[in-house]
């Protein structure tokens, strides 16, 4: 065990080996290619993904650059922290896993909602930076990594004796709690970082945000962290190639499960809860 407050997490720091470097090159190349294509489509061919062109305040190139640099610095520092605690392999799994898991889930919700592949409208991003991962800003995906890693670390610091599931649940609660304020503020017309497309009378809202969003926040962090906490030391027993393959198979399985869960949950909310906006002073 390494460092403090790591609870049941086992440190696996053993330095870079050939597999780590190969994995980093393959993942880096795949993500880089996706960034180039996505950024081109978003800015120069927005008709392909029918990207909404909403005028928003404070979204100059400099604003976008600031946002990207800030999140890159925060993600970089958290990445170094994770590297020092758990080693390169576990850090790569956490970074790519959280980035791909949360970023892909956001993309599925956005694009499926836009093209009516799911039974309700969702949302889209207005701001967040210049570089895109499909239709989600890179800074948002990096933000998910920061959220996921920071919250699980803090949960481990405060409750060092908890197991992976309790620890992931505490971390998810911290993230969801911050979003209770973040979502209403960031989507307000004065800020407009992203836009919810659901009508107020179509589903239950909390602070003018669809209720399923907050449950979704809890779930997305919880499922990923449980996966990582359980799998980040698999390579010690089964080898890195097999462990990495299994990790990504579980990741894809969880994505499918989570997608079904979110859609089912929203349909259940619509069917059972009153379609009102629970708000304080109009917020």
């Amino acid at each position: 065990m390494s460092g403090t407050g790591q609870g049941t997490v086992i440190a696996t720091h053993s330095g870079w080996d050939d597999f780590d470097l190969r994995l980093m090159k393959i993942m880096g190349a795949c993500l880089g290619l996706i960034f180039i294509i996505s950024t081109y489509l978003h800015h120069w061919a927005p008709h392909v993904l029918q990207v909404p062109q909403t005028p928003v305040p404070d979204n100059t190139f400099l604003d976008m650059l600031n946002m990207e640099i800030l999140t890159l610095v925060m993600a970089g520092l958290c990445g170094i922290h994770c590297y020092r605690k758990f080693g390169p392999y576990a850090t790569m799994l956490f970074f790519v896993g959280s980035f791909v898991f949360t970023g892909t889930m956001e993309n599925i919700m956005i694009i499926a909602g836009r093209f009516e592949l799911i039974p309700f409208k969702s949302y889209y991003f207005n701001k967040g930076g210049f570089i895109l991962y499909f239709d989600v800003p890179l800074s948002v995906c990096l933000g998910w990594f920061v959220f996921a890693y920071s919250s699980v670390y803090i949960a481990g610091i405060i409750f060092p004796k908890t197991g992976p599931i309790a620890r992931a649940a505490i971390a998810s609660f911290i993230c969801m709690d911050i979003d209770l304020w973040s979502d209403p503020v960031m989507t307000h017309p004065a800020n407009m970082y992203w836009t919810w497309l659901q009508d107020r009378d179509a589903t239950t809202h909390l602070f003018s945000i669809p209720l399923y969003n907050f449950i979704g926040w809890f779930g997305i962090i919880f499922f990923f962290e449980v996966l990582w906490l359980y799998t980040q030391d698999w390579h010690l027993t089964m080898g890195k190639e097999k462990a990495t393959g299994r990790f990504f198979i579980w990741l894809i399985t969880l994505m499918a499960f989570y997608m079904i869960l979110v859609i089912g949950m929203e349909l259940l909310i619509r069917a059972t809860l009153p379609h009102v906006n629970y708000t304080i002073g109009g917020i």
Binding site: M74, L77, C78, I80, H81, R84, G143, V146, F147, Y149, S150, S151, Y153, I154, I174, I178, W181, S182, V185, M186
Partner: peptide, 18 residues
């Protein structure tokens, strides 16, 4: 020291930016 506190600072910065 900055790295030691980075996960805590990161979430605090998110809260402050909100």
């Amino acid at each position: 020291v900055l790295v030691d506190y980075s996960p805590i600072l990161a979430l605090l910065m998110v809260w402050l930016s909100v």
